[in-house]
Amino acid sequence: MGYLQKAAQHHSHSHGLPLPRWLIHFGALGIFAVSALDASVVPLPIPGSTDVLILLLSARHSTLWVLVLAGVSGSLVGGYLTWGAGKKGGESMLEGHVPKRFYSRLKNWVKQHGVVSVCTAAVLPPPIPLLPFLLAAGALGVSRRRFLWSFGLARTARYSLVAWLGVTYGRRVLRLWSRYLSGWADVILWSFIGLLVAAVAFGIWKYRHDRRGSRRVHAGAS
C-alpha cells in the first residue's frame, strides 16, 4: 500500500496535479464498480459519483477511453440488472420506487417514448433520477436489445463529455481540492465507503421486499 501511495504521489506531482492520494486506487475498476451500482437498484449516497471519479481521473490525463469504457460497461451491467428487475417485478415493483404523483406521467412517457425516455434519463445529470426509468423500461415492455443499445449509447455520450470536461477544467477542480479539502481526504473517503455500504444493504433489503410484494400481488391475482 505504501508503495502505491508513493507512486500515486509521484505520478500526480509529475503532472503538476494535486491528486487526492486515495483516488488513484479507484482507477478504471473503481469506476466500473461505482457506475454499476449507480445504475442498479442501490441508491448511491452521492448522486453522480461516477461522473466525479471520471472527471478527477481524466484531469491527470489518464487513458480517457479506458475510463469511459469502464463507466459505460459498469452502467450496462447495473442497468441490465435493473431492467431485468422491472421486467420480473412488473408494475407492482415500479410503484414501489416511484412517488404516486409522478407514477402516471412516468408510465405514459415510457410507454409512448420507450427508447427516448431511457436515453434522456441516462444523459441528464442529477437530480434527474435514473432508477425509475430503468425499472419502467423493463416493466413496460422495452425490449432488451433496444434498452441496451439506447442506454449504452447515451452513457457513452455522457461519460465522454465528462472526460473532456476533466481534461479541460479538471486541473482547476484539483487545485481547489488541494487548497480546501486535502486535509479531509481520509474522512471523505471513509464516510463515502460507510454510506455506500449502508446504501447497498438498504438496496438489497428494498429489492427483496419489493419482490415479495410483487409475488403476493401475482399470487392474489391468480
Rank of each mutant, 00 (worst) to 15 (best):
G166T: 12
L23H: 05
N108L: 14
V98Y: 08
L19P: 09
S12R: 10
W177G: 07
V116D: 09
Q9F: 08
A136M: 12
A7T: 10
R172P: 00
D186I: 07
R101D: 12
R179L: 13
G194A: 14
N108H: 13
L124H: 02
R208P: 01
A136C: 12
S73D: 07
G114S: 13
A154F: 04
I193D: 07
P126D: 03
T63Y: 12
H25F: 15
G74T: 14
G74N: 04
R101P: 00
P127W: 11
W164F: 15
S150A: 15
I188L: 15
V187E: 05
Y207W: 14
I46V: 15
S35F: 02
Y159P: 01
R105S: 11
R179Q: 13
L81G: 06
G71Q: 05
S12I: 01
S222P: 03
D38L: 09
P99D: 11
R158I: 04
V98T: 15
W65F: 15
L76A: 11
R211P: 00
R216C: 03
V52S: 03
A221V: 08
A219P: 00
G141I: 09
H61A: 11
G90L: 12
A8W: 00
Y169T: 06
G48Y: 10
I204P: 00
G89F: 02
W164T: 14
C119M: 15
T120V: 15
S104E: 13
K100C: 05
L44R: 03
L44P: 00
W184Y: 14
P18A: 00
G166R: 06
I54R: 07
K88Y: 13
G141C: 06
A198P: 01
L53Y: 01
A185E: 14
L37P: 04
W177N: 01
L19I: 10
P18Q: 02
I31F: 04
L81D: 08
W109L: 11
K111I: 06
A198C: 07
V52Q: 00
A39C: 15
G27P: 02
Q9W: 13
L23C: 04
L161Q: 10
G96F: 09
E95I: 06
A85F: 15
Q9A: 14
I24G: 00
F32D: 02
H218V: 14
F202W: 10
W205N: 05
T168E: 15
A39H: 12
S35H: 01
G213M: 05
L134P: 06
L148I: 14
S160E: 09
L23W: 00
W22K: 09
R146D: 13
P125D: 08
A137N: 03
S191K: 01
R211Y: 05
P47V: 10
R144H: 13
L134R: 02
A28I: 00
A139Q: 06
Q112M: 14
